[in-house]
Design a protein around this nucleic acid. Sequence first.
DNA 1: CATGAATTGAGAGTAGCTCTCAAAAGGTGC
DNA 2: GCACCTTTTGAGAGCTACTCTCAATTCATG
Lengths: 232, 232
Amino acid sequence: MSDNDAMTAARTKTPEPSAAPDSRATSPAAPAPGPAGTAGMGLRERKKLKTRIAIRDATYRLIREQGYEATTVEQIAEAAEVSPSTVFRYFPTKEDIVLTDEYDPLLEEDLRARPADEPIVESLRQVLRRAVRLGPAEEPEISRLRTKLMVEVPAVRSRMLESMSVTGRMLCRVIAERTGRDAGDLEVRAFSMGLIGALTEVSAYWAEHDHQDDLGDLVDRTLDMLSTGFRA
Amino acid sequence: MSDNDAMTAARTKTPEPSAAPDSRATSPAAPAPGPAGTAGMGLRERKKLKTRIAIRDATYRLIREQGYEATTVEQIAEAAEVSPSTVFRYFPTKEDIVLTDEYDPLLEEDLRARPADEPIVESLRQVLRRAVRLGPAEEPEISRLRTKLMVEVPAVRSRMLESMSVTGRMLCRVIAERTGRDAGDLEVRAFSMGLIGALTEVSAYWAEHDHQDDLGDLVDRTLDMLSTGFRA
DNA sequence: CATGAATTGAGAGTAGCTCTCAAAAGGTGC
DNA sequence: GCACCTTTTGAGAGCTACTCTCAATTCATG
């Protein structure tokens, strides 16, 4: 998912190979292949990647040390040893440095790999379970910092809706393909955003409770509720 | 709802009596009584109200004339005949001038008025249906401009998540009260945000299709889908 | 009408973000 | 290795949203 919801925990700062600078509003979900090494790409690309990672790492570090608002882009630039303008070339906004990731394509792939007759909620459960297990093993603090920022920093929280829409559209495509409906159908769209909304709230819940619960369990409970009824 | 979703159509620029300046982050949902005349309040309050309305009207007019981004706060201030600082005293951000409204309390009231054993989705349907019918009769262009801005202007879109959360929390309270659960329960929260997410998408759909569909119908279709299954 | 509180305007300052332009570095053909 | 073209970068100017402070004005109240 482009960056919200429960999946947040599965995120890593892993490189994004084809992540071109200036991936503006037009392409929020870059066509980035899965996390891979820096194998077989020009010096240029490798440098870009390094810069991107440097900026992100510097940002996380500074935010952890002094908080989000206290951290200016200038500081980030200095810490990453680039100019401020370069920072903006890599990330459209300061919030995006924290939020941007490229796991939607992966998720989409995983979802499509599930049997087509499986209820989408069940597919999501399986896919998310795996993601939750695998992801944060490497860098739990980053996922936690992220979800925490989502809850605490208004600017970050705001930007999240963007991510939600992107992920929502992805879900629309998958659902449309399975059901034979159009991805632009009202029902498909509303359904997808309903799911995303619920799952995003799970992340918020998790962060608000200081990440003490098991994220996988929370997701399970939520999906159970949604599939069994969604009524009150 | 604090300002998103299908309800948008029911919004009016109607005065907000107790709308104190500087209603910052702490109180997104001002304890504003329903739309009422300027009856029985001091000169001061009336003046504040007039200022608030003047700012909002000026904003809508300017945005309609030259678009959102092209409209600066200075222009708004000038058009409303106040100083820029005053604008910020009334609205924390530029986006809030467009988005802020105070109908959550009304909605909450309406929801509580429904029979407690009615499924929440059904209650919502009734309440929203009424709101959609009554609201836009007075000023349809404003609702439409709003939903359009939500879809088209990233900054506005972003800010919307704030509204969604507020409305979501309201829904949590209502549901909690009905079911005897806690308003902070994971299930209650996820359920509420799921609903809000779906309904917000309805607004987006409506706006993207140039408001050609009947909003009431769209809401109906969505709630039908959610109550009958929420499965795909 | 005098005192105190609320509201406002003016203005300076910060930071996010955009844009332009010239310098530097990577890639490619000879 | 060299010249040529493209990409990336840094420097810096500039805009605007937003914050904060302080003094002036306006309203409410005894």
